[in-house]
């Protein structure tokens, strides 16, 4: 992004005016590029199969003014499995994703309509191959009021698992968001309905439902320790092979997710950077071996708008 050049405070008006053409009058900025790197460290509590997970991601996003944008995402994950009968089947996984969106502004609806398409691909060294070569396609249509006080979207995701007897997972979700307290707070709800093409491959479940709730609060400039944002989230119900296209997360391992809690803080750093940290815990169930366990994680994200 082009920036206005600083002027020394001792400059006279005349000299300031003479520098005006080069100092202030830039051509219009059109492209807004942001990048972020993130890391996740997780441990599994009560799991008979898993020890820990490490994950790192790179995201590059480019928006053309307020109208359109493209995002590219890469994630590398490693899951440390417990050795069973002397066999250690750790998984190393690469995930790629791209997101395209375009915003239409509708005066009739007093807001913007944003069609969005997310494509994801996953490859890993899963010895069973069942979670390998996964692909996801997810269109979404979102509405956001001009005042940014009301949001609604409808999203469909189709996940294909060609090495798992051609399992197909259909996920419908609808996001509803409300801004209040002079837009310092944002409350969002996201119900999920997830169906399986073969319930024998999804722990006997042909359809599961879940509800996700998230609250965001933005602090003013004088907040304690410079915190900019607080987030609290919870999920209740069941999700299987779920996908989250805001975070580009694909839950491609078979265990059923049965709830989650998370809390996060964000800080604004110098040079236009932002740091976000999230502590979370997710409950899973592997009914095949009757094992309920938790994944407890710390997620860190450092982002910068260029």
């Amino acid at each position: 992004m082009k920036r206005i050049q600083p002027l020394a405070t001792t400059l006279t008006l005349v000299s300031a005016l003479s520098l005006g053409a080069s100092g202030i009058a830039h051509g219009g900025d059109r492209w807004y590029v942001s990048t972020s790197i993130s890391a996740l460290a997780a441990t599994y509590s009560g799991s008979e199969q898993r020890n820990s997970q490490q994950s790192s991601s790179l995201l590059v996003s480019a928006d053309y003014l307020d109208n359109a944008g493209v995002t590219l995402f890469y994630n590398r994950s490693e899951i440390d499995f417990k050795a069973i009968n002397g066999v250690d089947n750790d998984i190393e996984q690469n995930a790629f994703a791209t997101r395209l969106h375009y915003r239409f502004f509708s005066d009739t609806l007093a807001g913007s309509l944003t069609p969005q398409l997310v494509l994801q691909g996953i490859s890993n060294n899963d010895v069973t191959t069942r979670s390998d070569e996964v692909s996801v396609i997810a269109p979404r249509l979102a509405y956001l009021s001009y005042g940014k006080r009301f949001y609604v979207d409808l999203e469909y995701s189709l996940s294909r698992y060609p090495n798992n007897s051609d399992l197909e997972i259909s996920q419908w979700s609808a996001g509803i968001g409300l801004g209040f307290n002079r837009r310092a707070d944002w409350l969002s709800l996201r119900p999920y309905v997830i169906t399986s093409s073969d319930e024998r491959l999804t722990q006997g479940e042909s359809s599961v439902q879940a509800l996700e709730l998230k609250w965001l609060h933005w602090f003013g400039p004088d907040a304690f320790l410079g915190v900019r944002q607080l987030s609290l989230g919870a999920m209740a119900g069941k999700r299987m092979y779920a996908v989250d296209h805001d975070s580009f997360a694909v839950y491609n391992l078979a265990d059923m997710q049965e709830g989650s809690l998370q809390a996060g803080l964000s800080w604004a750093l110098p040079a236009g950077m932002n740091l976000t940290s999230i502590l979370g815990s997710e409950q899973y169930n592997n009914s095949a071996i009757n094992n309920r366990y938790r994944q407890n994680y710390l997620y860190l994200n450092l982002s910068k708008q260029w």
């Binding site: 005016l17 053409a21 051509g27 900025d29 003014l65 307020d66």
Partner: peptide, 26 residues
């Protein structure tokens, strides 16, 4: 009114190319 601030910014940068110290533009 549509909260398209990036476009507002782009138009004002364009205006300031024509009139570098236009107060309203700034």
């Amino acid at each position: 009114a549509q909260q398209r601030w990036r476009q507002v910014k782009a138009h004002m940068q364009q205006l300031l190319k024509t009139a570098p110290w236009h107060y309203g533009g700034h």
